[in-house]
């Protein structure tokens, strides 16, 4: 029991350079506290997040993956985020077939001024993942 209580989920966050990564920096500048669960990987645009990166994160032991980009219509690259938006349901479907629950994968939009929104999303996702426990694929063995 105590082991489960101590469980700290690992969330890999893919954040676009222009909006969400800047927003995450802003959360820091504003000293908004949120769980250490998230480890951020900076990408130029969410459109560059190859679905295999998400699969790779789960394979390496992530309990959740969060992709965050500019709001639709505000993409630094016109519409890279829209491409991501279209890929997301397909990818979520694939992940579910691999036994990865829907709650473990999230796509969101956070602008460069929405540090608080980003921090809240990390808190929420952490709160959801904690009771779910570690991602357990293939009887505890890592896939791949």
């Amino acid at each position: 029991m105590s082991k489960k209580k101590d469980f700290e989920p690992l969330i890999v966050g893919f954040l676009c350079n222009w909006c969400s990564y800047t927003g995450a920096d802003l959360a820091g500048t504003a000293r908004i506290k949120y769980p250490t669960s998230i480890k951020i990987v900076r990408v130029m645009c969410t459109g560059m997040v190859d679905p295999s990166y998400v699969v790779k994160a789960f394979k390496e032991g992530a309990d959740g993956v969060l992709i965050s980009g500019c709001h639709p219509g505000e993409c630094h690259y016109v519409e890279g985020n829209v491409k991501t938006m279209r890929r997301e349901p397909l990818l979520a479907n694939l992940l579910e077939q691999l036994g990865i629950e829907r709650e473990r994968f999230k796509l969101m939009w956070a602008s460069a001024s929405e540090g608080e929104k980003f921090a809240k999303a990390v808190q929420e996702m952490t709160d959801i993942l904690k009771p779910m426990g570690p991602l357990n694929l293939g009887g505890g063995k890592k896939i791949g």
């Binding site: 995450a24 920096d25 959360a27 820091g28 506290k33 949120y34 250490t36 480890k39 900076r42």
Partner: peptide, 20 residues
């Protein structure tokens, strides 16, 4: 490695922050 804006400034002092 962004350990100020995206770690030290958003975390409580301690092991978890150091791990991150």
């Amino acid at each position: 490695a962004n350990i100020r804006e995206q770690c030290a400034w958003t975390s409580d002092p301690g092991e978890l922050a150091t791990e991150k």
